Simulated assay, not measured.
Amino acid sequence: MLDKVLEARQTQFSHVKPGDTEWRGEGLRDFFLYRDLGVAEATHGKVIAHLVKANMAPEKGTGWHRHEAEFQIVIMIKGWARFMYGNKETLVSAGDCVHQRPGIVHYLFDYSPDMEYLEIVSPADFKTIDVEGPCEVPPFTPWK
């Protein structure tokens, strides 16, 4: 019996190809599309990995917030995004990797039309908490 319980908790093998999952608008932000990579199911909720891409032009961005998560990275695949991490503006371009330490207050306020990034977070059911920002946010760049 114990073997079956331990086996049920083990991380499973997962292989998701581009056509296996669809882009969906059912994510944290309605101006992005999300594509699940099967990691949350394979890890029994320990980790989530999804692709995120721009769906609408930036108007107000994400607002100031923080995540209740143990681990979070963003790897920019295409385009760029401008974040505020505390009172520091950070441009994240294709090829860049950002480790967002637990609880860091941030704001994604601008991004290119072709922006696409991989986000990996633990746990999969992390919480997002809106917070007061430490400073003003620069204006976004309108799409042409």
Rank of each mutant, 00 (worst) to 15 (best):
V39W: 06
G61E: 13
E7A: 15
T141R: 06
D3R: 11
T43G: 02
E70A: 06
I77V: 15
R66E: 10
I73H: 02
D30L: 03
A124L: 07
H50W: 03
T43A: 01
G45D: 04
D130Y: 13
E26T: 14
V98A: 10
K88W: 01
E41M: 00
M56A: 09
N87Q: 12
S93A: 14
E70M: 03
Y85F: 15
Y34A: 07
P142R: 07
T128W: 00
F109T: 05
L28N: 02
E68H: 10
G61R: 05
E116L: 12
G63M: 03
T90R: 10
K4S: 11
K53W: 06
E119Q: 13
C97M: 14
K60I: 08
F13K: 09
R35A: 11
V39E: 06
Q100N: 09
F13N: 10
I120R: 01
H44D: 12
S122C: 06
F109R: 08
H65C: 08
H65G: 04
A40E: 12
D20M: 13
E132K: 05
G133Y: 08
V74R: 09
P123G: 04
P139Y: 10
A42C: 07
V105H: 04
F126G: 05
E89L: 01
G25R: 11
G86L: 00
R101C: 00
S112R: 10
T21R: 15
T128F: 05
I104D: 06
Y117V: 01
L37Q: 14
G86M: 00
P58Y: 04
G79L: 09
D30T: 10
Y117M: 11
A49Y: 07
D3E: 13
W23S: 05
L51G: 07
Y107S: 05
V52I: 14
A94P: 07
R35C: 14
T62K: 09
G38D: 11
V52T: 14
P58K: 04
L108V: 15
G61D: 14
T62M: 10
S122A: 15
C97D: 00
V47A: 04
P142H: 09
L118C: 12
M76L: 06
G61W: 07
A42F: 07
E119H: 03
V105D: 01
H99W: 04
